Amino acid sequence: MVKVAIFDYGAGNIFSLKSSLEKNEAQVDIITNLEKIKNYSGLFLPGVGNFDPAIKSLNTSKVVFQDLIKNQIPVLGICLGMEMFFEKSEEGKLGGLGILDGEVILLPNKFKIPHMGWNNLQIKKPSVLLDGVKEGSWVYFVHSYRIKPKNEEIIMADSDYGINVPAVIENQTLFGTQFHPEKSSKVGSIMIKNFLRVCKK
C-alpha cells in the first residue's frame, strides 16, 4: 500500500480528497509540516483556500518543498495547489513557490466567475496522469483563476470555457489539475490511480 500525504493549509474541506485516495487503497495522512515528507511516497497540495494564506502556510517549508522537487518525490497540485507552483497570482500579493515559470491570472470578467461545474477535457498530448482517460471526458471545476505557464509544453490538456483553460500539467514528477479529480467521478479516480502508480515507483 502506497503512503501519501495531504498538506493542510488550514482551509478545511480536504476530506473528500482523503476519502478518494483511501478508496484507491492509499494510506493517507494529513500534515501541516513538510519536514515529515521523507516518510511518504507522494504529496498532494489540495485545491481549497486562498493564495496568500496558503503560500504563508507553505513558506516555512519552502526550502523543503524545493528539495522535494529536486529529489523527484511526486507532487499533485489540485486547483489552488497547482497555482502555487508558479511565480505569482493575481489573487494575492505574495510570490508563489516559483517552481514553474509563469503566473496565475483571473478568468475574463465576461465569463461567470467562479467557473463552477462540469467541463470536458481536450487532451493535447500523451500524459502519465491522463493514461486511460478518453478525449472529451468530463471533470469538475471550481475556480476563478487560470494558469499562464511560460513553457506551454507542460500543458497536457485544456478545457474550453469560452477561452482555453489549461487543465492538466506535467513536468517530470510535478503534476497539476485545475479541476478537482476527487470530485470528478470515475474519470478523476483514473487520474488518482495513475498518480498513485507514480508514487509506487
Rank of each mutant, 00 (worst) to 15 (best):
D158N: 14
P46L: 08
Y140F: 15
F86N: 03
P166A: 05
D67W: 06
L196W: 05
L17Q: 15
G96V: 13
V133W: 09
K125A: 11
S57D: 07
I123S: 03
S127Y: 08
S127V: 09
E153S: 06
A157D: 01
S159H: 07
S41P: 05
K112L: 10
N13T: 03
F65I: 12
C79L: 06
P46R: 07
I190P: 06
I55H: 05
H180A: 12
G162C: 12
P166R: 14
F111S: 14
V168S: 04
N39Y: 03
M156L: 15
L76P: 01
T173M: 15
E182W: 04
L43F: 10
E103K: 12
L174H: 01
T60I: 13
K18N: 08
N71Q: 07
K62Q: 15
G136D: 10
W118R: 14
F51G: 05
I69N: 03
I99G: 00
G98E: 04
K56Y: 15
L76Y: 07
K70Y: 12
L106S: 08
M1T: 09
F195W: 10
C199N: 04
F44G: 13
G96I: 13
R197F: 07
L43M: 03
E170A: 02
G77H: 08
G176Y: 05
F51P: 03
K38S: 00
F141P: 01
F44T: 03
E90W: 03
K3T: 02
K3F: 05
L94A: 01
K201W: 12
P114S: 07
V63F: 15
P114G: 02
D67V: 02
G102H: 11
K148W: 04
Q66K: 15
I99C: 11
E152H: 15
P46Y: 11
C199E: 01
F141K: 04
S184K: 12
E153V: 07
I163W: 00
M82T: 11
K112G: 09
N109A: 09
Y9G: 10
L174S: 03
V64T: 12
L58A: 03
V63P: 08
K201E: 00
G136M: 13
Q27Y: 13
V63A: 14
S89Q: 04
Q178E: 00
F85R: 00
E83L: 09
I169L: 06
P74R: 15
V75S: 05
F86E: 00
E87F: 06
